[in-house]
Computed example of a mutant assay.
Amino acid sequence: MKDNMLTELEKQLEKALEEFDFAIDWDVKQHRIEVSVVLFAENKSNDVIEDEEGVQSEEEVIEFEDSLVLYAEDKEVPDELEYLAMIPFNRKKGMLKGDIKALANYLAEVLVNGQDDLLDFLNDETIETFELVWNDEAFEEEKKNNNGTAMVAYPKY
């Protein structure tokens, strides 16, 4: 079976994100592929943590989830406030294999930094908010380092 964007993405994410939980969700109608990631951290002092919806938690283990989306350029652009990153692709051509590898590698970097930031947030009262940080310029740099020219097709139904 020939690889498509979904299979290639899963393969690269499994390699790059070995210690992190992730899920891939394919929205066939919208031509979007969502990648959700989860960070866990111990809330040793049982601080009350409030998420952006105002839900409070004093759980011993804090679970933080975020997601990025790959979307077809010719479809509706997703709401950028909902995602860590939004990456367009061409539905007819698919995506460069090197870009998918770069995405997985850069996401791993974002999560490693995020894990540290989350622990700092939980252990340092002067830090008021926590969020993952995706830098488009850094992602573009990563893409240059993974310049595979092979295209991976958008999946068929």
Rank of each mutant, 00 (worst) to 15 (best):
K144E: 15
E10P: 01
V110A: 01
E82W: 09
E137P: 03
A153H: 06
D74R: 01
V35L: 02
V112F: 14
L132C: 08
L118A: 05
L6S: 12
E10S: 08
S57A: 11
D66H: 12
E109C: 09
K44N: 13
N4K: 06
A150D: 05
A102P: 01
V35S: 04
P88S: 15
E10T: 07
F64M: 03
M95Y: 08
K15D: 13
E14D: 10
K101F: 14
I49D: 05
E140L: 06
V55Y: 11
I24N: 06
L6K: 07
D120S: 12
A153K: 07
I87A: 03
E65G: 10
V110Q: 00
K29Q: 09
D25I: 13
M151P: 10
G148N: 09
Y71I: 11
S45C: 07
Y106Q: 10
D47M: 06
K11W: 13
K101T: 15
G148F: 03
H31C: 12
F130D: 05
D66S: 15
E141K: 04
D116E: 14
E19H: 10
N147P: 02
E142W: 03
A138W: 04
V35R: 00
D51L: 01
E10M: 02
I24S: 11
E60P: 09
D47R: 06
N135W: 03
K75Q: 11
A72S: 05
L132N: 03
D25M: 10
Y106T: 10
E73D: 03
I87T: 00
L39P: 02
F64N: 08
L84V: 05
E125H: 08
Y157R: 13
D27K: 02
G94C: 00
S36I: 07
V37M: 01
N90L: 00
N135Y: 05
K92G: 05
E34H: 12
Y154K: 00
A138E: 08
D99F: 08
V152Q: 02
K97D: 14
P88L: 06
R32Q: 15
L103W: 05
K75I: 07
D124G: 07
A72D: 03
